[in-house]
Nucleic acid binder design. Sequence first.
DNA 1: CCATTGGGTTGACGTTGTAAATTTTACGAC
DNA 2: GTCGTAAAATTTACAACGTCAACCCAATGG
Lengths: 197, 197
Amino acid sequence: MPRSSLTQEQVDAFRTRAVTVATALFAERGYRGVTLRSLAAELGVSPMTPYRYFENKEALFAMVRTDAFRRFGNAQRDAVRNAHAPEAALHALGRAYVRFALQEPAAYRIMFELEQAPTGTYDELEREQARAFSYLLSAVQCAVGAGVLEGEPLQQAHMLWAKVHGLVSLHLAGKLAMGCTLHDLLPEVFEELRAAE
Amino acid sequence: MPRSSLTQEQVDAFRTRAVTVATALFAERGYRGVTLRSLAAELGVSPMTPYRYFENKEALFAMVRTDAFRRFGNAQRDAVRNAHAPEAALHALGRAYVRFALQEPAAYRIMFELEQAPTGTYDELEREQARAFSYLLSAVQCAVGAGVLEGEPLQQAHMLWAKVHGLVSLHLAGKLAMGCTLHDLLPEVFEELRAAE
DNA sequence: CCATTGGGTTGACGTTGTAAATTTTACGAC
DNA sequence: GTCGTAAAATTTACAACGTCAACCCAATGG
C-alpha cells in the first residue's frame, strides 16, 4: 500500500557521502564552525534532510569520528599484518601512524585534536578507538616478551604513542619552527611515501 | 566637562576577572560552547558589557590564550632560573611543564587542545607562544653545547616537547588506559607536587 | 543648577540547531 | 489509469546565539 522504505543500501550511501563531506568540513572549520545547513547545502539537500539519517549534529560528529578511527585502525592492522619480528612491527606501526596523519590530516585532526562534543556516549566510537590502539599494544607486548623492549607493556605503548602523537600534532598545528619539519625529524617515513608514488 | 573615563586599573580589573572566568568556561565547554551572554551572566553584568572591554568574542579568546601562555611561560622561566647545569635545566623544564598542565588543566587545554578561532592575527599571543618555547630551546642549545645532548638543538627541543605534550594531552583526554596513569609514567613529578602541599 | 559625555543596558537583526507541521513522492489495490 | 496511504522531504517556526545601534543614566565642569 504505502511507499516502500529506503533500502539499507540507500541509507548507508547517504550516510557515507554525508560523513565524507562532513569530515572535510569539521577538520577545516571545527565542530561548531560547521552548520548542518551548510552541510546540507554541500550535499544538495534541504536543511532538515540530514536529520532523517542522523539523530542530531552530535551523532553525526560521532559517526565521523568513528569512521576516522576505523580507517586509522585498519591502517594499523595492515601495518602489522606482514611484520612478525617485534622491531619490524613497531617500526611499521610508527610509519603507518605518520603516513595516515599526513595522508588524511582531516581525519587525524578529528580523531585527536578537535574538541569533542562530550554529551552522550557512543559505543561503536569507543570500540574503534580501543581497536586502533590495540595493534600497538600487542606489538609492544610481543616486543617486551621477546626482550626487545623493557618495562610494562601498557606504559611503553602509551609512551611510544605519545611521542609520535606529540610530534605529529605539533607538525599539523604548524608549531614546528622553521628548519625543523617532520621531514627532518622522520626522514624515513617521507622516503617511503615518495617511493610509493 | 564630561564624566571621567575609567582608570586603566578599572579596565584591567574587569579584563582580568573576565579572562579568569572565561578560561574555565572555554576549557570546560570549548570555544563555541561558551556564549558571551553566559559569560556576562557569570560576571553579573549585562550581555553587551563585555563588548566594552573586548572587541569581540574572538579577541576575548585570544586574550585568554595569551594569558595562559604568559603564565605557562613564566613557569618555564622560573624552572630554569635556578638550574644552570644542562641536565638539571631540562628536567626542571619537564617537571614544570607537567606540573603546569596538572595544576591548570583549563589553561593547558586552551593552549594546546582547543580549536583556535583562526581569523585574525594577535601579535601578543604569538609573542607569548614563542617565549614559552624559548626556555626549552635555550636549555637544549646549552645541553648540546655541553655535549650532554646530540643533534640539532631545534629538532631536539621539538622532540622533547612533543614527547611530554603527547603524554600530557593523552592523559588529559582520558586516553591513558587503566593502570597506566601519568602518575605511573612520571612518578617523580607527583612526588614533588605532593611534597609541595 | 544644567548640559555634556562616556559607561552600561535594552532592543533588534541575521544565523544557528532542531521540533512540528506540511507537502511531495511512490507504491498496492482497484 | 486513479486513488489512498505511509514514508521521505521540505517548509515553517522558535529559542538562543553574536553583535550593531539606539537608548538611558550618572557624574563632572561650568
